[in-house]
Amino acid sequence: MARTISYREALNEALAQEMERDESVIVLGEDNAGGAGSPGEDDAWGGVLGVTKGLYHRFPGRVLDTPISESAFVGAAIGAATSGLRPVAELMFIDFMGVCFDQIFNQAAKFRYMFGGKAKTPVVIRTMYGAGLRAAAQHSQALYPIFTHIPGLKVVVPSSPYEAKGLMIQSIRDDDPVIFCEHKAMYDVTGEVPEDSYTIPFGEAGVVRDGDDVTIVAIGRMVSVAEEAAKQLADSGVEAEIIDPRTTSPLDTETILESVENTGRLVVVDEATPRCNLATDISALVAKEAFGSLRAPIEMVTAPHTPVPFSDALEDLYIPDAQRVANAVKTVVEWKR
């Protein structure tokens, strides 16, 4: 039965249901239980923001705390995936990819190709991204474009509790390595989620809102920002179609192109910094494949080309908001040759 739960609860439920269903699924990461070797409680934290809470006692021996040693445990998750387990490793903040990237992009991503199609690496690396928590430059980045760039990785960026659960279950059952990007400001966002297990396939965009005047492609948390903008725009008679790619690799290019072919206008909203991000990638795609349909230049709404600032006065300017999206839409709708 569908009920309203949070993004955090949706992820926890997905992990629990898959651990229940398949005993090769294990969970590992820094403080995924919390309290290992300490005099106090076991399962003290359940992950730094509580996503894995309760799994430690429910699935004895299958939730592993790790030292703060990302290369070792991310690499271990990858090695274990080649040896019959389906590990879900938590790279606490996506910013920490810097200390373990080799294991992800030179090892996991390339095994299948460089071993001539004979490797299977069903690992999921869960990681938090995104600004808005005043966590500053090393705990706030939206680095999914870097993973998207790497052949061999699949990259998931869910925008709602429903997507979080279905995409997580798909990620765990998927036989390729998956980078699962959770926006840290979305854990308390609630939405309707079925109790049953279900999957959402990769490479199929969600169409969050139908509209004929402009296509807004928004990634992850930016979907809700785009929805807010679309509501404002509807009051002034502009109907925006909002497309949520759900996975940046694979990318559902067909749904994006079909929509732009109908609306003739594109705004891409991406929380990542502007060089070589999803906004540039999708814009290039549309400029190449749907040039004839475009009735105005493409607009990109992104973070500026800076590290994420700390002060709320700056961070609020850094993150794309509904007003900027609405302004971009107005620019493309009102554009005249």
């Binding site: 294990i26 021996g61 299958r62 592993l64 290369s71 070792a72 445990f73 991310v74 690499g75 271990a76 998750a77 990858i78 090695g79 274990a80 995936a81 080649t82 040896s83 019959g84 387990l85 590990p87 080799d102 294991q103 030179n106 090892q107």
Partner: peptide, 16 residues
């Protein structure tokens, strides 16, 4: 590149 991966294969052997 290899030592972390081997922690994983060893972990799999231990778990199984």
């Amino acid at each position: 590149g290899g030592p972390p991966l081997i922690c994983g294969t060893a972990l799999a052997a231990k778990q199984k």
